[in-house]
Amino acid sequence: MIIEKGANNYTLAQLEEIERIEIDLLLEAIYRLYGYDFRKYAFPFVKRRISHRVYKEQLTSISALQEKVLRDSEALMRLLSDFSINVTEMFRDPSFFKSIRTKVIPIINDYPEIRIWHVGCASGEEVYSMAILLQEEGLYNKCRIFATDMNKEILEKAKQATFPLDVMQLYTKNYLEAGGKRSFSEYYKAVDDKVVFHSFLQKNVVFAQHDVVTDQSFNEFDIIICRNVFIYFNKDLQNQVHKLLYDSLSLSGFIGLGQREGVRFTSYGNCYKEFEPSEKLYQKIK
């Protein structure tokens, strides 16, 4: 508990209310000063992250954090990276990628150009997975992949295409389960206790910083992959971001969401058809 029980004997509900106000104020402050907008992120998530930061910064209250963040942009950066959960995997949920391979690829096969947007690409695993998949399906050369994330640091990491050795067993398994056609080792080289993915996978990839909450649509895409990003948003924000994605998706384009996400309870639910329900793969129908 961040808020210490002071001299006043607050009830739990009161304490919670105080905490809520502090959080709202903090987020409002960040938005006003820096333009980062976390006001509509899922409250429990924001709360946890902020408490985490308060603890890490060895502060005693959210208000203190607010003060620090307002004066110290480094502290803000640290808080920002707390909000950016970069957990990802290559071929995460292999069946999702398998569906793309077996169901989506045949449809987009003869497009003259395929534009793909990875929203919240984190450290790029998802992007390289897609590049490998497209490469194996012979489509990579006519693809343009836009990989964006709000977190600049993680984008830098993504550009390195360097991943620790210890996750590679899992990635290889995922690759195989996702219907990989070649030998996964063809794509990387071990260097010390890391592996570096070959640079040709980056040929058609553009990494760019983009915040889906505050930034606008910048292109029209045939495929948008936005996995495990909505989980951090509240319903309001989900609808708002869904609008952005909807506007950025071409008609009969595909949108892929995370395993635990869906369009059903959003205001765009009926604009998509469940293309592969078990995989949260939707196709825009209107």
Binding site: A42, F45, R48, I85, E261, R264, F265
Partner: peptide, 21 residues
């Protein structure tokens, strides 16, 4: 209920990712 459960799964996923992190 569905909405609740959806929100809950999302929250769960977020939590699990945080945990992983």
């Amino acid at each position: 209920l569905l909405l609740e459960s959806q929100t809950m799964t999302e929250e769960l996923q977020a939590q699990s990712e945080e945990l992983q992190l």
